[in-house]
Structure formats: structure tokens, C-alpha cells
Computed example of a mutant assay.
Amino acid sequence: MNVPYDCGLAIVRDASAVRAAMGRRGDYLIRHEHGDPIDKVPELSRRGRAFTVWAALRSLGRSGVSDLVERLCRHASAFAAGIAEIDGATVLNEVAFTQVCAGFGSDGRTDRVLARLLDDGTAWISGSTWHGRRVMRISVSNWSTTDDDVARTLDAIRRAAAEA
């Protein structure tokens, strides 16, 4: 939903389990029958992160969140399909959500493809190590990513792979 990474929700049926896992006790802390926010978050002092999540949910609505997730997943699948067609490239993970890990033969070649891609400037895609192998790690997470962005980025990856 493109909210800050430190925003998150866990919906838990058993309130006592959340209090046991997250709660803190001290004479200076509020004790009330309805609980206190301290019983639901891992730190004592924090900004109101939940507002950002609430605003995104309120703005997008159920269908908007569903459309966003579906679109991000579709873009990740398109990246995987496009990379799989590149000579010497292998998609190494099952693309079940928005992450794609791909190798380009050797670790050295994968790093060269990444360097050429970053030098190209079309897209910023990071390298990583996955199961002991160097990989190109694509994380599709921006709401504004379009089909054209994916196509242009795949063209840049193809160029980088050809040059490496």
C-alpha cells in the first residue's frame, strides 16, 4: 500500500496473547480495563503509524487494495516471464507475490548484468545473495509502476545481459 515500512498490522483474535507478547509493566504505565496502546506495540514511544495505514485503507477501499496487490503481482510475473526468455537467465524462485530472484549463469555474470543495468539508469534493481548465489532481486512494490515501466525495464535487463 506504499506506506512506510515500519507500518504494519497484526489482527489477532486473542487480546490476551497480544498483551502477553507485546505488553510491558511498570508503575508509571497506565493500567486500565480496556488496556493501553503499550500492550499492542513493541516500543513505548512511537509516532502514530497506524494513521498512515488507516488513511491508505480508507482511500483505496477493499477493491483498491485488491487491485493494487493484483497489479503488483502481475508485474512481478511479467518480470519473471520476460527474464526467463533471456539467454542464460534463470528465475530462481516461485513468483508467488512481488519478488523475483534471477541469476545470469555465474555469480560474476549476474553482478556484471546488475552493474550494467544500474549504469543504464532505466531502473534501480538491487543484487542480493539467495541460497548462496548472487541474484538480481526485483521487488515490485510501487503503486505507480505501469506495464510500460515493466516493458522498458525488461528491455534494459536484456541489454545489460547482452553486454555482460
Rank of each mutant, 00 (worst) to 15 (best):
N142A: 13
R24E: 11
A89R: 03
D120M: 00
G132W: 02
G64L: 09
N142P: 01
R134F: 06
A15S: 11
A55D: 14
G23V: 08
A20I: 00
S139Q: 13
L29E: 02
L68F: 05
A76K: 05
R158S: 11
R25G: 12
T122L: 03
C73S: 13
T153H: 00
D111Y: 02
R134L: 06
Q99S: 09
W130L: 15
T145A: 11
R134D: 06
D149E: 08
R71C: 07
A162R: 06
P42H: 10
A78C: 07
I83A: 07
A162G: 07
V113Y: 01
V135G: 00
W54S: 10
V65P: 01
V135P: 00
A156P: 01
R159E: 07
V69W: 00
L68N: 08
T153L: 09
L154Q: 04
F104W: 02
I83E: 03
R159H: 12
G82D: 03
T98I: 15
R133M: 10
C7M: 02
L154N: 05
M22T: 10
F51E: 15
V91N: 05
V100A: 05
R46N: 14
G132F: 03
R31T: 13
M22Q: 05
L57A: 15
R133L: 12
I157F: 01
A160D: 00
R19D: 03
L60S: 07
L60M: 13
M1W: 02
D14W: 06
R109D: 04
R24N: 06
D107W: 01
A10P: 00
V65Y: 02
I11G: 06
E85P: 02
S141T: 09
A20N: 06
V140F: 02
N142Q: 13
R13M: 02
H32A: 14
T153F: 01
A17F: 08
L60V: 10
A102C: 05
V41Y: 00
D149Y: 07
E94F: 07
A151Q: 06
R47H: 10
S66R: 13
F79L: 09
R62A: 14
K40Q: 12
W143D: 15
F79Q: 08
A50L: 11
A17P: 00
S128K: 01
G8K: 01
H34W: 04
R134P: 03
W124L: 14
F97M: 12
A160H: 01
S59M: 09
A81D: 14
V41Q: 10
S45C: 13
I86A: 03
E94G: 12
A15T: 11
A20M: 05
N2L: 10
R71Y: 03
V113S: 03
C7P: 00
C73G: 09
R71V: 08
D6L: 10
E43V: 14
W124C: 08
D148T: 14
V135K: 01
D149W: 06
T129H: 03
R159K: 10
T146F: 04
W124V: 15
D67F: 04
L44I: 15
D111V: 08
R31G: 09
A161P: 02
L118V: 09
P4V: 07
L60T: 08
S45K: 11
A17T: 13
A20K: 08
D155Y: 02
E70V: 11
V18A: 10
I138A: 07
D148K: 10
D155K: 06
